[in-house]
Amino acid sequence: MKITRKEFLELSGLSILGAGALRAVHAVKAAESAHANSLPSDSPKKQMALAIDLRKCRRRPGCNLCSQACHATHNVPHIADPRHEVKWIWNEGFASVFPLEQNGYTRRNYNGSPLPVLCNHCEKPPCVEVCPTGATWKRSEDGVVMMDWHRCIGCKYCITACPYGARSFNFSEPREALQQVNPDFPTRSLGVVEKCNFCAERLAKGEAPACVEACPEKAIVFGDVLDASSDVSKALDASYSIRRKPELGTGPNVFYFL
């Protein structure tokens, strides 16, 4: 059989394409089985949650010690330009956080008092749903929504999907915006997304999250909501709590006492 140069080139091109397609199919199959395994099972073992007592927060106007402790622990860069800010836990106004609870006659001292917001480590996190690479996922053992900064491609789809504005993108070199570096925690690279990790690295050592430890008023309680004897469950039993945008069905795991 005699083949022309053109046919030869076409054939080689097709075989390379075919081999590539086969690889892709295998990858999808492998990923699907892996994905099935990584899905949180119907009855998760644990679900870590945070309850913030704003009554205690209001005792200290202008306080942001939790934010400072968190950002120092996790090498969160301090960027002056609000458009490029990176933040894991920070204060917001009452009307922004709870637009539906704001009725025009809401107690005036609610606005302007410290109100920390952070990633809600949702039961059904929209960010995990949309991530094309699994760089963010919900940990099955304790429900923490994690991030893998090695894998993130910086598409920013998760920022778009998060209804809480909890995610930040590294628009500029983060190390240049760090005065001090905590050597025990990595910094991030340009072009990846980051957010609160519920101090996964501290939980691994049996320690409480940095924000919980830093609060002088003990306003933040942390623990497993599925365990009725945990601190957070007891606190939720004792007072009426609300969550941010529960109507969206995301199931936030950060609770607030007003």
Binding site: A72, Q180, V181, N182, P183, T187, R188, S189, L190
Partner: peptide
Amino acid sequence: SCHNDPQAATAKVM
């Protein structure tokens, strides 16, 4: 670019 070198980072270490 993310992981720290304790020797190089001493100036900035907490």
